[in-house]
Simulated assay, not measured.
Amino acid sequence: MEIVKIVAFALISLFLVLILRDEKKELAVQISIAVGVIIFLFLISKITAIMQFIQQLALKANINFVYITTVLKILGIAYLATFCSEICKDAGESSIASKVEFAGKILILSLAIPILMAVLKSILKIM
């Protein structure tokens, strides 16, 4: 099971970070970032498979691919903003973390507006 590998790797890394945090905080943050990237790289094949599945569903359902692409971009922004925010919090910079979260929310909103407009147009056509 892949989750067991991920959890074991994360726990070992956590112990290493906890040991180094008091003595070398910079190195602990770098290890934390590296662990996040390695876990992401481990999951890249799963993410690719999910994206291909969503593309196939969109083709079968005759959904405009622009909407699917926008939703995937929104998910990417949410995950990246959360990842960066957590790293900033680990480094003790909660102020920067909150600004990254805010920027992510604004970017998501800006991407969601065209989808909301399309939904509203569809509702108006039905009426």
Rank of each mutant, 00 (worst) to 15 (best):
I39V: 15
F40W: 12
L41N: 05
F42H: 14
L43A: 12
L43Q: 15
I44C: 10
K46I: 12
I47V: 14
Q52R: 11
Q52M: 15
F53L: 13
Q56D: 15
L57M: 14
A58H: 14
A58C: 13
L59P: 11
L59F: 14
K60F: 14
A61E: 12
A61R: 14
I63E: 09
I63C: 09
F65N: 13
V66L: 09
Y67Q: 03
Y67I: 07
I68N: 10
T70A: 10
T70Q: 05
T70W: 02
K73C: 09
G76C: 07
I77C: 11
S85V: 09
E86L: 08
I87D: 05
D90R: 09
D90Q: 10
A91R: 03
A91I: 04
G92K: 03
S94H: 10
S94N: 08
S95F: 06
I96C: 03
I96H: 00
A97Y: 01
K99R: 10
V100N: 01
F102P: 01
F102G: 11
F102T: 04
G104M: 04
K105M: 01
K105A: 14
I106S: 03
L107S: 02
L109V: 10
L109R: 02
S110N: 13
S110C: 11
L111W: 01
A112F: 05
P114N: 03
P114V: 01
I115N: 00
I115K: 04
L116T: 08
M117K: 02
V119I: 15
V119Y: 10
K121I: 13
